Each structure stands twice: as C-alpha cells, then as structure tokens.
Computed example of a mutant assay.
Amino acid sequence: MDTNVRTPDPREHVNEEPRNDLGDLVTGFLGMTTFMFVVFFGMVIIKFLMSE
C-alpha cells in the first residue's frame, strides 16, 4: 500500500540564515574582554580610593 507522504529533504536548509560565525566570535570575545578590563580597572580605582 502506497501512502502519499512528503518528507522534506534535509539538505535544503530552509530555516538557515546566512551568518558570519567568525565575526560573531570576534565580536563576543572583544566585547567580553573590554567588559572585563573595565571591571578590573574599576576595582583597582575603588581599591585605591578606599586605601586612603
């Protein structure tokens, strides 16, 4: 018995959006590094002001 079942071809990648993975990686890495530098120097300044 034949049934009319239409299965999508998984090679079509219908839901994929074009993305720049390396750009996302670099942006995330630089953003987190910048954030950590700001936190670090903020703590250094706070410690300097508290020690006086």
Rank of each mutant, 00 (worst) to 15 (best):
M1C: 15
D2H: 03
T3H: 09
N4I: 06
N4R: 05
N4M: 11
V5Y: 01
R6K: 15
T7Y: 03
P8A: 09
P8K: 10
P8N: 14
D9Q: 01
D9W: 00
D9R: 05
D9I: 07
P10T: 10
R11I: 05
R11D: 07
R11S: 02
E12N: 00
H13F: 00
V14I: 11
V14T: 02
N15V: 00
E16I: 01
E16T: 04
P18M: 04
R19K: 14
R19F: 14
R19W: 08
L22I: 04
G23R: 06
G23K: 09
G23N: 09
D24L: 12
D24K: 15
L25V: 13
L25I: 05
V26Y: 02
T27R: 12
T27A: 15
G28P: 14
L30K: 10
G31V: 14
M32D: 10
T33D: 07
T33P: 15
T34K: 15
M36K: 08
M36E: 08
M36Y: 14
V38C: 14
F40A: 13
F41L: 11
F41D: 07
G42N: 00
G42Y: 05
G42S: 00
V44C: 05
V44G: 01
I45E: 00
I45K: 02
I45Y: 05
I45R: 08
I45V: 14
I46E: 08
K47H: 09
L49Q: 10
L49K: 13
M50G: 09
M50N: 04
M50Y: 09
S51C: 08
S51R: 09
E52K: 13
